[in-house]
Nucleic acid binder design. Structure first.
Length: 111
RNA sequence: CCAGACGGUCGGACGGCCGCCGGCCUCGUCUUUGGGCGAAGCGGGAGGAAAGUCCGGGCUCCAUGGAGACAAGGCGCCGGGUAACGCCCGGCCGGGCUUUUUAGUGAUAAGGGGCCCGAGGGAAAGCGCCACAGAGAACAAACCGCCUUCUUUACGAGGGUAAGGGUGAAAAGGUGCGGUAAGAGCGCACCGCCGGACCAGUAAUGGAACGGGCAUGGCAAGCCCCGCCUGGAGCAAAACCGAAUAGGGAUAGCGCGUCCGCCGGCGCCCUUUGGGCUACGGCGUGACAGGCAGGUCUUCGUGCUGAGCUGUCCGGGUUGGUUGCUUGAGGCCGCGCGCAAGCGCGGUCCUAGAGGAAUGGCCGUCCCUCAGCGAUGAGGACAGAACCCGGCUUACAGACCGUCUGGCGUU
RNA sequence: CGGAGUGUAGCUCAGCCUGGUAGAGCACUGUCUUCGGGAGGCAGGGGCCGGGUGUUCGAAUCACCCCACUCCGA
């Protein structure tokens, strides 16, 4: 699973398909340059908390994605997760469930 | 045993499964032999504040090192520690709280002890400010008073005075006696103040013979004076490799000089198939002026440059890799010196190096806190390395150790 | 990560350098004017000056330490 790093790629997500949950907002967009690979980008803004909180959220979301993506993610797609405050202390099983539901919902809607 | 203050140490422990970062090593594979990719194994992987960015350094660039002047900024009792500091340690002085002794009926005064706090040079170098109130706020002044003189008298005018009243943050020594028209350091005693031989101490400072009737209000975290310190930027510094573009344009200021050698050469001259002089042009591991440095200037040495240099503005390309990047004023242990901060010697250890940024997810046992009779349940402070050190400041659940103070219990 | 700034009335700002009274515009309240509203006139309320400590007789102002926000950068 690749990582989205460049600002350009994040900006390209504008207008992409969305799926909301208590712990995050998920954006998905097919990217022909990926050659079938799945890429993940994480956004955790300073509004959410200090460095400790932001780091923990990033790690929890990454752990959940590692578990959920292999089964549910569509090939050749860029995903971006915009974290919400709940991702810090929400039960891990619930976060994992949020992610699976979001992936399913996007798989139905995306063209 | 409990409570408090101060100082110090630690800041959850162990294990399992699946992952992340970088290191070592092995294997496989590809290769343009530099290396790339993949897999297995071994061991490592956040802090005491990693934070705020408030000081001090190292390191890198501005060509480089030194000296001086000015400007700007900072620091400021003394001694020590340190690479250095605005930090730390010890002392001095001042202030606050408390306790105790002496004097006194008492208010209080003086001395001693303990704890805490202090950005603490100079206000008789100069300038400035001191609102309101008050007569007067810094070469003193005179509102009410007090005393006195004059006019017939007086709530009038003049003079003397600074005790008393009142104002204020602050009113130009205090108390007492003498003295006087009333008063006043006018005189005297005690206290305070100023100067101070000499003594103690490295010093700050303390003590003090003696002298002086007292002259000197406060503010320098106002300007300032004195002494000391400091060039500017910052690892997004900077260097190398690769790619890309045009090392681009505009504008302002200063400068573009001399000599020597060689070559060409207009012209001229001579003793004519050679040589000399020379306008000009070109070249030089040539020489010298000149230029190139940080806030400004001067100066010396070195270096570069020597025809360009400097300032301001506008525009364009690249957003790849490597180095810097972790061994350091380093940690731990022992001995010695020192009241201490700390220093010296010996031994021992190597302990994160990412780059849109790695330490995570789940589970079990134990520890601690809270709730509950219990089964059990909920929770685990502040907070995340980004070039590296020394400090300061701020945040912080809880645990442990030491010293001191107070209380209770037992002997 | 590094470097600059700004916090004053409900809003936008002045006052700070050179310390003693906190002020302007808009908004708000009352009133006059109008048949009514708006505009306009008059009167009025509203601030422990981001927080703390210090210097001073006295601090929005000077100094130091925190908190929040904004801007800049190869």
């Amino acid at each position: 699973m690749g990582v989205i790093k460049k600002r350009r790629d994040f900006l390209a997500m504008r207008g992409a398909d969305k799926a909301q949950s208590r712990s995050f907002l998920m954006l998905a967009r097919k990217n022909p340059e990926n050659q079938g690979a799945v890429r993940l980008g994480l956004t955790v803004t300073k509004k959410i908390g200090d460095a400790v909180v932001r780091n923990r959220i990033r790690r929890r979301l990454r752990a959940a994605a590692r578990e959920a993506f292999p089964d549910a993610a569509r090939a050749g797609t860029d995903y971006v997760l915009v974290a919400r405050k709940a991702a810090y202390d929400r039960n891990y099983a619930a976060v994992l469930d949020d992610m699976k539901r979001a992936l399913l919902s996007l798989a139905r809607n995306t063209t």
